[in-house]
Design a protein around this nucleic acid. Sequence first.
RNA 1: GCUCUGGUGGUGUAGUCCGGCCAAUCAUAUCACCCUCUCACGGUGAUGACCUGGGUUCAAAUCCCAGCCGGAGCACCA
Length: 506
Amino acid sequence: MEAEDEGDEHVLPDLPNAEEGAVVMRAAPNPNGPWHMGHARMPAVIGTYKQRYDGEFVCRFDDTDPETKRPDLDAYDAILEDIDYLGFEADRVLKASDRLETYYDHARELIDLGGAYTCSCSGDDFSELKNAAEACPHREKDAETVHEEFEAMIAGEYDAGEMVLRVRTDIEHKNPALRDWVAFRMIDTPHPREEASDYRCWPMLDFQSGVDDHLTGVTHIIRGIDLQDSAKRQRFVYDYFGWEYPEVLHWGHVQVDEYDVKLSTSTIKALIEAGDLTGWDDPRAPTIRSVRRRGIRGEAIVESMIELGLSTSDVDLAMSSVYANNRDIVDDAADRYFLVRDRDDDPAVELDVVDGDAPAPAAGHPPLHPDYPDRGDREVPAGRVVVESSDLPPEGERVWLKGYGPVRYDGDELAFLDADIDVVRDGDVDVIHWAPAGGSRETLLRTIEGDVRGYAEPAVANAAVDDVVQFERVGFARIDSFDPAATDEADGPDGSEDLLAYYAHP
RNA sequence: GCUCUGGUGGUGUAGUCCGGCCAAUCAUAUCACCCUCUCACGGUGAUGACCUGGGUUCAAAUCCCAGCCGGAGCACCA
C-alpha cells in the first residue's frame, strides 16, 4: 500500500483504487487483422499492471459489426499469438459474438426499467432532433410496444436501418454526444463466424462493452481518447442497473516514427493486397509480426510502450527506443559475422589479396563475439575477397581487413603488409569487414528501407534459423532461412539466394 | 457550431493535485572523448524543454484569466 518500500519507481502510475489481487483489466480488440505496433500498448500496459497487482487479463474480441468492421476469421488467433509474442497471456478469452443472448437479456431488462425504446427515425431525422435537444415521438412508447418491437428486431423482422433500440439518457444533455444513443441496430450481412451467422440484431460497442465490462468484473478500463465519451454514455446504463462503473483511464494515439506506412490495420491490409507489401511481416510494415521477424523481442517493445506512460495526449514512439531496448537484450548472444553489401550506389568489389611485404595468410580468424573469446573464432578464407567499395582507401593507402590483417590497396589488388595492430590503434588505418569472393553466402537482407543484397562469410552457415546475429559494421539481423524459396513478389527472395535475413537495427 | 481533452529538450517521461529543495528528473537521440581489430557493448562529458501574454505571490512548470496551437466525440464503426 505504502509507496515507501524499495526505490523501484514504477514508470506507470499506480492504478486508482487498485486492490492487490482484485484488479481485472481487459483488452478489447476488433479482430479485423493482425496487430500493428500501436496495438502492443494495451497488452504491455495491462500485462504490467497484472504483474504489479496480481490481477487478471481478459481478452475480449469486440466483434459486433459483421459489416463495416467485418471480423477476419484468422485474426482472432493471430492476435492471441501477437499477445503471446509480447510475453503475455490472457487469463480469459471471450468473443462478443458468442454473447448475443446475454446482451438481449440485458436489453429486455433495460426496457423494463424504462431505460430503452425502439425507434424508427432515420439517422438524419434523429440527429436533427437530437441536436435541437428534442425527443423523437418514439421516446414515449409504452414498454409493451417496445418489447414487441425489440423482439421483432431480434427475430430479424426488420431490415438494416428500419429500427434501432435507443438508450434513454437525457435528451437535453449539454453534450450532444450523450443524448439517447443507439444500443442495437439491424445488420443484414451475416457474421463471418458460423456460430453467430444467424443474428441480425447487433449491439453497438457502448452497450456491449458496457455490459461485458460489468459482467466480467472489469475493475479498470484503459482506452483511447476516441472513446472519451463512452464511459459517460455507459454510465446511463449502469445507473439503470444500479451497477458501479469501473475506473477509467484514457490515453492518446500512438504514432511510430521510422515507417512510411500509417498505423492502421486497413491501410496495411490494402497495401498487402496491392502487392506493395509482401505480407503482414514485411519489414516495411509497422506490425508486430514484422518486428518479430526482424528479431526484435516482444520484451523490447513492451518496455518502450511502458515508457510512453499513460498521457492523454498523442505520442510518438521512437523506434530507436525499441532498438536500444532490443540491443540490450540481444547483444550478448548475437554472434558476429561479416556481410558485404552490394548496393547500386556502393557496389561490392572483388579483389585478390596477394603477398606484399609479407606473405598473405590463407584465412582470417575473427572471434564470434569480441566480449566472449571462449566462444571461439570463425574462419574466413582469404585469397580473393569482396569489400564494399566505399570502404576502400585511396589507391596506395592501407586498410585493415578485420580479423585478417593490413593490406594496401593497389588499384586492382590488395597487397598484404607487414604491420601490426598498432597501426590501427594509432588511428592511421581503418578497419573494414570483408568476405571471400568464392564460398560466401549470397544473402538477401530485408530492411525497412527495402531489400539489400550482399555476401555473407561462409561461417554464417553455423548460425541457426531464428538466431539474431550482428553483421559487423552493418547491424543486427535475424537469420530467417537458408536457401529460401523464390517468391513472385517484386521484393523478397528470387530463388538465387543462399541466405535470407531480416535487418533489425544498428 | 456544441461538448470533452491536452500542451515540459528531436522523442518519451518525472515534477503540476498540496507554489519554494526545479538555474527542472530519467531514458532515448545527437556530438565529442575513452575503450575497442565493428559505426556494437561499456565508460566519461556535452547539447537540448516548462505554448504565449497578463495576473496573484517574497516565490509559479506548478494557482487564476485570456489567447494560441493540438487531439477527440456529436455514426444504425470499433
